[in-house]
Amino acid sequence: MHFNSTRFLIDPTPRRADGEYMAHARISCSRADGSEYDVQLSGDLAAFDVRDDAIACAKNWAREWLDARFG
């Protein structure tokens, strides 16, 4: 099953460390008043030379995490 919802937001922005891009994901949700709160933070997942690879890794991790809990 694949998770599909606009309720959760995934921020896969990598951070730069030691010349590499560290993949990590922030999953958040919006409250009724429009403010956001964190649902899950991945921590560092893996290091990549290419920024887009780090983003893809983080998105994949987040989707799998959401599928496992809400799929």
Rank of each mutant, 00 (worst) to 15 (best):
D33A: 08
I27Y: 00
F3G: 05
R51P: 11
I27M: 00
I55L: 12
R63S: 14
S42E: 05
N60I: 08
Q40A: 08
M22G: 05
E36W: 06
W65D: 05
F3R: 04
R15K: 11
P12F: 02
A23K: 01
G71D: 05
D49R: 04
H2W: 15
R26Q: 15
A54Y: 06
A23R: 05
E36S: 07
V50A: 08
P14W: 01
W65H: 02
D44P: 13
D18T: 10
T13N: 14
D11H: 11
E36D: 05
V50N: 04
A68Q: 13
L41H: 10
S28G: 06
L41D: 11
I27R: 00
D44H: 08
S5H: 06
M1G: 10
D11R: 08
P12L: 07
A54W: 01
V50F: 05
A54D: 03
E64L: 10
Y21Q: 09
D44T: 05
Y21I: 09
A68R: 09
D38S: 09
M1C: 13
R16I: 15
S28R: 00
E64K: 15
D49K: 12
R69Q: 02
D38L: 06
V39Q: 00
A47C: 07
D53S: 12
D53I: 00
F48A: 10
A68C: 05
Y37E: 14
L41T: 13
D67Y: 03
G43K: 04
N4G: 11
F3H: 13
Y21W: 10
I10A: 06
I10H: 08
K59R: 14
E64W: 08
C29L: 04
S5G: 06
I27S: 01
R16T: 11
A47N: 15
D33K: 02
I27N: 00
G71R: 01
R63V: 10
C29I: 09
A17G: 09
S42A: 10
G43R: 03
I10K: 03
D49L: 14
L45K: 04
G34L: 12
E36I: 04
I27T: 00
A56L: 07
V39F: 00
K59Q: 14
E36H: 05
V50K: 04
C57T: 14
Y37R: 01
S5I: 11
Q40C: 06
R69H: 13
D11M: 13
G71P: 08
M1N: 12
D67V: 07
D53Y: 00
D52T: 07
V50P: 12
G71A: 13
W61I: 12
Y37Q: 07
I27L: 03
R63I: 10
N60R: 13
F8E: 01
E20V: 14
W65L: 09
D11E: 09
N4I: 09
G19T: 02
S5A: 02
P12Q: 02
M22A: 12
G19N: 01
G19M: 02
G34T: 02
V39K: 00
W61D: 10
F70Y: 07
F48Y: 12
A47D: 07
M22F: 08
A62G: 11
T13F: 03
A17N: 12
A25E: 05
T13W: 06
T13Y: 10
F8K: 00
F48N: 06
W65Y: 15
A23M: 02
A47H: 07
P12D: 09
D33T: 02
N4E: 10
C29R: 03
